[in-house]
Design a protein around this nucleic acid. Sequence first.
RNA 1: GUCCCGAUAGCUCAGCAGGAUAGAGCAACAGUUUCCUAAACUGUAGGUCGGAGGUUCGAAUCCUCUUCGGGACGCCA
Length: 564
Amino acid sequence: MKYKQEFAKILYEALDHEIQEKELEMLIEKPKNHLHGDFAFPCFILAKVKRKSPAVIAQELSEKIQSPTIEKVEVVGAYINIFLNKKMVSEDTVAEIIKQQEKYGALDIGNNRPVTIDLSSPNIAKPFSMGHLRSTVIGNSLAFIVEKCGYKPIRINHIGDWGTQFGKLITAFKLWGEAEKVKQKPIKELLTLYVKFHDEAENDPSLVEQGRNWFKKLEDGDEEAAMLWQWFRDESLKEFSRIYELMNVQFDSFAGEAFYNDKMDHVVQLLEEKQLLVESDQAQVVELTDEGLPPCLIKKSDGATLYATRDLAAALYRKENYDFDLSLYVVGNEQSLHFKQLIAVLEKMGYAWASNMVHIPFGMMLKDGKKMSTRKGKVVLLEEVLNESIAMAKHNIEEKNPNLTNKNAVAKQVGVGAVMFHDLKNFRMNDIEFSLEDMLRFEGETGPYVQYTYARACSILRKGNWQMAVTAPISSPSWEKEWKVVSLLTEFTNAIKRAYEQFDPSQIAKYIVDLAQAFNKYYGDVKILEDNAEQQARLALVYSVTIVLKEGLRLLGIEAPEEM
RNA sequence: GUCCCGAUAGCUCAGCAGGAUAGAGCAACAGUUUCCUAAACUGUAGGUCGGAGGUUCGAAUCCUCUUCGGGACGCCA
């Protein structure tokens, strides 16, 4: 990034300050074809101002470009192509990475200010599906990315532990449930009951009525209802934590929906005070016509509160308790309208910080081109997928590296890494058609591919007895074959910046795949351990690559085994 | 009906505040292991960038319209 800035500055001087440095920096591009150099400046836009042909301008301008970091300047048509001084930039970059270690690439824009991240948020008594995987994995990665940019992330698991479905569940349990079965396989059994409830309810509408009653009892503090609720919740959380452990995801708070039960009245009161509540069809709503949105429902006609009310309470609570600079909600695309309304209502309430709330939507995990439905039992269980992936990784280890010492630990890292990476490598908004085959792929643009690259690089360092303390000569005469790798290493900060600006972890995923590809090509091309004068320089480069790959994976929440 | 997403190689996707011959991976085919982990590497083949207009010196990228797919649209979350 800094070399681009430098080039912009040189152009700025060469153009006698006619165009702002920042603007020039934006105009500079990275040529797709490496034959066109490391940076290019198209001169078309200067043609009108200078009233000369772009090619002539390019030629004239190019003559004024000179810098020790620039090795060669070429003019092709209207383009000024510049080639960086490979030796200087390579040695500089490698030294920088070795010096900064895992801090390399960090940005200093957050001032250690808090950023709350609402992620994962599974529903109690429902299986942890592939859909929740998306929120968990994207949110977790964003927390790391935001942290890398200098913020202090706060991961909040807004557990879905309240709502009418508990009435249904209690009803179903009372009718058909067996405590023993629930204890053994809590979620599976509760799901069976939930599905059965919906099947039976199609012919017996009274069930729905019973469900409503049980939920009412729960809300009124009925002892039996509360006990069952607590039990379902505990069992569910136990099962969830097993999955989080597999994926190595931690939270700062599990304050879910029930947590806000006693904080709703306050919100409603505030809305009343600000005279924002309007009655409509016996319900209480906030009108948002000015904002071009449908009204936001705050209270049902029976006086009960709703999702929006709860989220308002949560937003207020989070602002008060965490004093966030940014509040991110990693929640599916289908809830976009809800978040628009939520933010609009907060703005109407006069909270300027509402504009710091960002909904980060993502596409759906589809099954046969359609949304998965819990009610119909049409879900794929994440834990099963993870375990299958781990088994597959184990199988590969037995086949490819049977002497590996900690096989199970590595199998877990690789298997889980494959599933997580699969979810993170593409732009979040894309829908994903569920495919076990794709998810458990370990070749090509996958998590295991990056991990494998890392492991191989580590292996070389071991064999070459690389001592990080040896700061001595990382000098090499050409850095020709290393250039692609070095050039990518200089881009790491850029990838992090993009990932942050767009709240898009796939920017990091794509970057580390690129780096891994470049490194593997280099690995195949050059005998790194060859005992000659440049060996230390090559090892230093390999070491730099391991640092960046490992850090890149970490930002995605994926571990990097040193052997596999 | 209104609104929000998406459409690029057989499949999965990248590229999108406009720029030089549209890139990867998978699948297919052909190669590379007395050599640093072949979960790798090399090569071949594969494209009306959904369609039609428009803006521009220049459009996969911006604007309008349109087709198809997914989703959301008051008492679920």
